[in-house]
Design a protein around this nucleic acid. Sequence first.
DNA 1: CGCGTTTTTGAAGCCCCTCAAGTGTAGTGG
DNA 2: CCACTACACTTGAGGGGCTTCAAAAACGCG
Lengths: 263, 263
Amino acid sequence: MVNAFIRKLQGYCSLDPPDLALLERVCSGARVVSAHTDLIREGDKPGPVFIVLEGWACRYKLLPEGGRQITAFLLPGDTCDLHVSILQHMDHSIATLTKANVAVIPSLLLEQLTETHPGITRALWWTQLVDEAVLRAWIVSLGRRDAVQRVAHLLSELWQRALAVGLVVDDILRLPITQMDIADALGLTNIHVNRVLQDLRHDQLVRLDKGRAFSVLDPTALALRAGFQPDYLHRFKPRRNEELAPCRPATGRLGRSGADISR
Amino acid sequence: MVNAFIRKLQGYCSLDPPDLALLERVCSGARVVSAHTDLIREGDKPGPVFIVLEGWACRYKLLPEGGRQITAFLLPGDTCDLHVSILQHMDHSIATLTKANVAVIPSLLLEQLTETHPGITRALWWTQLVDEAVLRAWIVSLGRRDAVQRVAHLLSELWQRALAVGLVVDDILRLPITQMDIADALGLTNIHVNRVLQDLRHDQLVRLDKGRAFSVLDPTALALRAGFQPDYLHRFKPRRNEELAPCRPATGRLGRSGADISR
DNA sequence: CGCGTTTTTGAAGCCCCTCAAGTGTAGTGG
DNA sequence: CCACTACACTTGAGGGGCTTCAAAAACGCG
């Protein structure tokens, strides 16, 4: 089976066979990292670029008061930023949530790679734009959705992203994360996340499995509940659950047209 | 006076005189846009790249139910993403908040520019990394800070960014935005923002001026109230208010070291 | 089996929202 | 100059969603 990183990139762009082979080789030197291990910490000098090949990780920031806010989940195929190395220090930490298989690419190597392979460069740009779009969607959830919608939206997003890298098997996505992780991602308490999940379970949208992992049962109904519109993930390859049609939001206060601005 | 965009880039990197002249020329064809005008809308096909030279703008998303969530404020010197043009459609809208002066750069021109001028390219990478860091800080605010801290943090961030482009005059930063805008940015109601601002005014941290604009009076105390740590803005040029020393947050649950991962 | 972690349940309370009204300010036109 | 309008800001009362605190049950791993 092709690795998750390549599989994800192919969801955005068509890559030439030579590019594919090159990426395959670059990722070959992966190493296993146990669960709950920091790959890099806030304040550290940025080092190599990480690519998660198996397992789950997250970006997070700690508050002076002791709280933790997760700002992104990294699934297999996800990377940390391309150009972090030009910064003096990390402004957030990255840690594994489960045992993970992580490719470690020297930033210099990646730089050379992008300079000589425009196809790969373009695919990486795409992933970065999607990462930013995900951050914005995260903000919308935290700012304007209630707890049920937040959980449903997060699960819907993870479902779509998991589909893209083949993490959904038998129509089931197993989430190897705790309710505490979800709470820290959504700005809630684990207690309230628990109650929300009970609601969703009662409505047959998710299920709690053995082994501290729950599954998404009905992604369509879940997306409906969340007000989830998958456009922002910017995938162009056909995906399942196409019935989640993008709906244009009602026009708001800022109604004046700016069409003439562009030209 | 040099334009805000160039001034901002110089806060990150040293640019050669020829690069400066080139940027100056690229920005010369700016146009005036009246307040509350969409530069581009969610769903639109991405067009040219905008650079705000004067005035304020914001990125925002509308919800199906009608709410608005602002995900970023664009100050003079700020741009929209470099590579948006490779996406099929915008996942968010960008609108002016005040009357603004906006440079409109064809994406093709910008592409050529970056291919031939590595210094400019590097500076633009930097701004993009900072934009992402700002998004993450935004998430932390929405997820883990109460209303007073959120407002104080936003004002502190805007203060620092305004300093970088010379928007702070006589130790005063005028914010030409409404309390509604702040509310839509912070996931609050305008009513509650109003009460929070009254608290901050009572403590002599901000002031309400004539002409629907308020000023930051005591940025140091404000930053203290917010738990604001300016590191994430990644500026290397000396800035004022250096007394806001970055403090390393307490180590959290994810304590295991991953130092050995990097090499 | 035993212990740490995670999940679950209950009760009390607070932060912020909703609804509703009222005040102030700027701009417009008679 | 003053009505008239539109918009932003302000104030109050009541309610709900989520938190905090506390403890028990369930699970998983050595």
